[in-house]
Design a protein around this nucleic acid. Structure first.
Lengths: 148, 148
DNA sequence: AATAATTAAATTGCATGCAATCTAATTTTA
DNA sequence: TAAAATTAGATTGCATGCAATTTAATTATT
C-alpha cells in the first residue's frame, strides 16, 4: 500500500527522535559556557525571560518556557540563593509570586551575551536554514498547543 | 536603548530555545500513550533500537541515542525488571554487555506500532515540511558531532 | 454572604541526563 | 612481556522535568 498517509506517518515518526536528541544536545552544549556563570541552561533561559521583561509571575515564566511549578519552584530558589533574582508576593493577588532581577542578575546580562554566538557557531546552519528550522519548530510547538 | 546585545538575548531570536522546548514536548506528548505499556519515552527508544537490530552493546545503544552509561545502566535494569530485555557479557570482550530482546520485548513491537501514528497526528506538518525539518535537525546533530 | 469552583505555587515521587570518577578488561607500547 | 594507556560499564551526585496532590487565595454561584 504505502500511500501518502503512510509516508507522512513514517516521517513524522522519524522526526520525533531527532527533535528529542537535538534538544538534549543543545542543553549539553550550552553547559560548559554557562558553567563560568554558575548557571545551568534552564536557569539561563529563566533569566532570559526576565531580561526581556522583569517582574513576572512564576506562571508567566512557565508559559514562556513550557515549564511547570514543579520544575520552576526549586530552580527559582536556586537563582535566589545565587543572588540573581528575588521573589515577592503580588500585592493584588497573594497567590502569585512576582520574580524580579537583582542588580547582580541585571549585570549578568551584559556578560552573558558572549555565550549565544559561541553556540551559534557550532550550529552549522546558514541564515536561511536557521530561519526555516525556526519556523518549522514553532509550527510544531504551536500545533501541540492547539490540541490541549 | 535596545541595542545589539538585547536582540541576541531575546528568546524569540534564538534557535536553541525552540529546539530545547520542542524536544521536551515530544517526550511529554509520548508519555500518555506509552503509559499503557509501562514505558517511558527513553525506554521506548531503547527498545526501538533493539527492534531494528537485536543483540547490541550498551555503547552502541548509547551512540544511537546520544545517551551515556550513566543514563542507560539504570534504564536497562528497569527494562530487564519489566521483562523486555536481557543482558549478558560479550564472550569476546568481557567489558561489553550485549543487550537482547526477550520474547515479551519482541512481542511488544507489534502492539506498540499503534503509538507513533497518534503522535504523528499531533505534529501538524505536511510531508514537505516534515522532510525539511528532518534534514535540518540532522544537519544540526551532525554539525555537533563534527566538533567533538 | 456562604459554598463551590478555580487558580497559583509548593510539594512529592519518579525517571531521566550528564559530568566525573571508579573498576575491570583489553590494547598498546616501551 | 610488564607497565601504561585505553575502553566499556557502573556508580555518584546534582539538576531537571513532569504528573499528581496539596495548600492558600480568589472568583463564581446560589
Amino acid at each position: 500500500m504505502n500511500n501518502y498517509g503512510d509516508e507522512i506517518l513514517k516521517l513524522s515518526n522519524q522526526i520525533c527522535f531527532p527533535l528529542y536528541a537535538t534538544g538534549k544536545e543543545i542543553v549539553r552544549r550550552y553547559q560548559p559556557y554557562l558553567e563560568k556563570y554558575d548557571l545551568t541552561y534552564t536557569q539561563y533561559i529563566v533569566l532570559m525571560v526576565l531580561w526581556e521583561k522583569d517582574h513576572v509571575s512564576v506562571k508567566e515564566i512557565g508559559s514562556h518556557l513550557y515549564l511547570d511549578s514543579g520544575t520552576l519552584t526549586p530552580l527559582l530558589n536556586k537563582l535566589i540563593k545565587k543572588g540573581y533574582i528575588r521573589k515577592e508576593k503580588a500585592p493584588r493577588d497573594e497567590r502569585e509570586l512576582i520574580i524580579s532581577l537583582t542588580k547582580e542578575g541585571e549585570e549578568l546580562k551584559k556578560e552573558i551575551i558572549e555565550v549565544p554566538p559561541k553556540i551559534a557557531k557550532k550550529v552549522k546552519l546558514n541564515q536561511e536554514e536557521a530561519k526555516m528550522l525556526y519556523t518549522l519548530l514553532y509550527k510544531v510547538l504551536d500545533g501541540f498547543k492547539e490540541d490541549e
